[in-house]
Design a protein around this nucleic acid. Structure first.
Lengths: 189, 189
DNA sequence: GTCTATAGATGGATAGAC
DNA sequence: GTCTATCCATCTATAGAC
């Protein structure tokens, strides 16, 4: 793994575990196993570090939206399941998303953050809309997933594993009879 | 208005508008129209300021849950409407909630923040559950509102006014026939 | 109760060796 | 490409006048 990625991983971890205030260049560099000077070679400023995180978020977010469209059990279930992130075990998008939420509205880079959030949210919304057929229900499902993400911000992880199945059951009247076992998806590779 | 409240108002505004990093004691005090020393008389430390904000959040949150139960158009509609906060015009709970979201997971006080969020979320959940009858649908509705709050974190305010009516319409199959025009609420003053 | 002035600590960033 | 050492700005908090 490249040093650049190790730095971003460490930055994410610190943002999630100790918060933005304690995610200093010193803390990030030592956590990543490089010196402060070494970090600043890869990211010439703290803003560059933030930008690097947001670029990673954008790439992973767009990839995720594409993956949702091809998921076996449908975009809706994939969306809700992915929105209830077990942050410890995940090393991918969920972690990056929650880390980025921590710095959203924090610094100068918030304009870029806003744009990236808007772009990937649009990608997710489009995937849900294309599966559900209409924008209103797509927006509804998206908001449920967003609500799950908010729990990561408020720190309500002690609420136990999120009952995604219960949510899908409660949503059933809205989703119609498009249960996960619908066989109308051609199997492509 | 007491100086203490003016300080908290200024702190909220700075958290929302410029973020936690720039919400320094200098900025808060000058924005509130007092000196730094004056601020530190009312709040002996920055942590005390954070605690003061969280106490205000707790009080307003519990009041809001009580108000939801008595609302004319029902707890669900009140919840969704209140979760789509026009931050500029509101001076009450929504503003405090979003401000607190900005510092959640930031400092040492995050343990208290977590507890306060959990408490008021429980109050909202109970109000929705008592109106809807079962916890699964209550949780679903609550998550939709939480999703609207997440937009305040990601900064997606340019998405236009949130179509609460569209959400209620899309949720109708879940909510059953408990339309807002139910006349079973006695008018008290 | 509110102010000014200042101490003490820490963060971001630069310079330059290796 | 990575390191150490250092500078400078800024933030929290204290001391003490009014």
């Amino acid at each position: 793994m490249t040093a650049r990625d190790r730095v971003l991983d460490a930055y994410e971890s610190l943002l999630i575990e100790v918060g933005p205030a304690a995610a200093t260049l010193d803390a990030v560099s030592s956590s990543a196993g490089v010196s402060k000077g070494g970090l600043l070679y890869h990211f010439p400023s703290k803003e560059a570090l933030v930008t690097g995180l947001l670029e990673r978020l954008r790439r992973r977010g767009l990839e995720d939206a594409a993956r949702m469209r091809e998921a076996e059990d449908g975009a809706v279930a994939t969306w809700l399941r992915g929105s209830a992130p077990p942050l410890e075990s995940t090393s991918g998008l969920s972690r990056t998303y929650v880390a980025a939420l921590r710095i959203a509205g924090g610094d100068e880079a918030s304009e870029l953050a806003r744009a990236v959030f808007a772009e990937i949210d649009e990608g997710w919304f489009a995937a849900l809309r294309d599966e559900l057929g209409d924008p209103a229900r797509a927006r509804l499902v998206q908001l449920v997933g967003d609500g799950l993400y908010l729990a990561a911000v408020t720190g309500a992880e002690d609420a136990g594993p999120v009952p995604v199945d219960d949510l899908l059951a409660a949503l059933a009247p809205v989703l119609g009879r498009s249960t996960p076992s619908s066989p109308d998806v051609s199997d492509r590779d």
